[in-house]
Design a protein around this nucleic acid. Sequence first.
DNA 1: ATACAATCTAAACCTTAGTTTAGGTCAAGT
DNA 2: ACTTGACCTAAACTAAGGTTTAGATTGTAT
Lengths: 147, 147
Amino acid sequence: MQIGEISKKTGLSISTLRYYDKHGLLQNIDRSNGGIRKFDDKDLEALRIIICLKTSGMKISEIKQFMDWCSKGDTTIDKRLNMFYQQEKNINEQIDILNKSLKLIKFKQWYYEAAKRDGTEKNVKDMNLDDYPDDIRKLYEEAHIIW
Amino acid sequence: MQIGEISKKTGLSISTLRYYDKHGLLQNIDRSNGGIRKFDDKDLEALRIIICLKTSGMKISEIKQFMDWCSKGDTTIDKRLNMFYQQEKNINEQIDILNKSLKLIKFKQWYYEAAKRDGTEKNVKDMNLDDYPDDIRKLYEEAHIIW
DNA sequence: ATACAATCTAAACCTTAGTTTAGGTCAAGT
DNA sequence: ACTTGACCTAAACTAAGGTTTAGATTGTAT
């Protein structure tokens, strides 16, 4: 497979694939005599994990580190394993933060629904905590511990 | 409160606060006669939501749009409400993607635990799907639909 | 009055993650 | 041999989100 086909299969642009190659994420990609990149299924498999790591917030340089470890063989198994445990933590933290954001977002939805009903923000802006419905007050309070 | 105190309270650097101000996120911040920014509790409250939106992936320019709407008053209530519904969707999509990443990550953890036990990646690399434990095979398959 | 820390601005700089451009090569079909 | 689409590289460019620098001002404490 050539770069165009890989681009279609992965959804990454051709220039991004070349960028990844240049930065050491695509290790030992074959080339034709003329210098054209020849990808196989293993490369595609590697791209899968690259995309997954990228999507979950890992930096290019960290992914390169991982690919370097892969090339280095069995002596780096422990490092790679630890990386995946660390990345699990990172992802869970991200999810946690997003769930917390959601609380403030939902409070604001309630707030603006009330403003919409009234045709003005005034009333709801002047309300105090005790006037909020219980579930909304809870959202508000939880959100304000964090943000 | 001056910028240094706000920096400590929000965790944003002083230069970031000035950057936000310059880009229209901090609207109608008072200034002393000498030109020094004077923040009050309402400003701090606005920063809370700015930080929350930022953290959940909204761009500076979009946050500015929201702050502009806030300044414009009641005619923009609907736009602001819609923005919060849209942001809820965005966040849920992000959480979804992260949960999917987690499946591939956990498969890799199993993979490298096996490699670690064996002292080599060889055996586990050569295994085929049927040899995986049921739960791991499921992880692998689910992860490979996506990535 | 003077010292001093904290603040101010504009402008340059930085990093990350690519994209675009320009000028060339490769290889398959005619 | 020639055309054509896909590919190649290096280098410049872009955008977002800040950070750093330099030089000036503010305002509080002695």
